[in-house]
Amino acid sequence: MSRWVLAGLKTGIVTTGYPREEESAPGVTPGRPRGGEVADPAKIVARCPSGAISAAGGGVVIDRRRCVHCSACRGDLPWEETYEWATVAAAESGLGRPFRGSLHVLVVDAGSCGACLSEVRQLNNPYYNMHRLGFFITPTPRNADLMLVLGPVTAHMHRALRVAYAAMPGPKRVIAVGTCAASGGVFGPSFAAGSGAADAVPVDVVVPGCPPPPLAVLHGLLVAAGRKEGAG
């Protein structure tokens, strides 16, 4: 097995410096449009297929909970290559001092398309390596401090999600990951899909994006742990 040890050593360290420093490697984020003053707001509003853009005072505003950065407005609106997207949804977000060191995270797929799930999975890859920041994925709600909810919460996952939440010991926090978990996204609300995680469980932090890149999810975890400020 020495071959694998050598292969590992030869690879060296590829891990990002975030959150100590900004990550600027190309391709770490799909970016997203930014609202503001525009020449023809009505045209841009009409072009948005997810109804996330609305006109306001000579410009447009973007509802982050609905925007799927489909890029239909690319070219009309400035595109920001950022990733610190997590916002605080509840008054009490940070878990407080005792939870600053190490947190266990339960991931619940409540109807995600697989892209959010894949981005969360990347957090364990050597580029992001969330272990170094004290975050660990746990398979059981009994050990979990944080829950990541992905997807619009389908009718079929509603109950399982609530059971898992109830099984977590307190204090506990919920992070809605992705546009679907934030608002139902392109799927909900409907007969089969809900309008996001808040339908079923109390949500503390929202990470918008379709899907949010790994660094945005990491930012959400840090916000929930009280180690970073949420976005405005």
Binding site: D109, G111, S112, G151, P152, T154, A155, H156, M157, A160, F187, G188, S190, F191, A192, A193
Partner: peptide, 10 residues
């Protein structure tokens, strides 16, 4: 079908 979102219906 836990992830059934009924996309063809909607």
């Amino acid at each position: 079908f836990y992830n059934y979102r009924g996309v063809e219906a909607i």
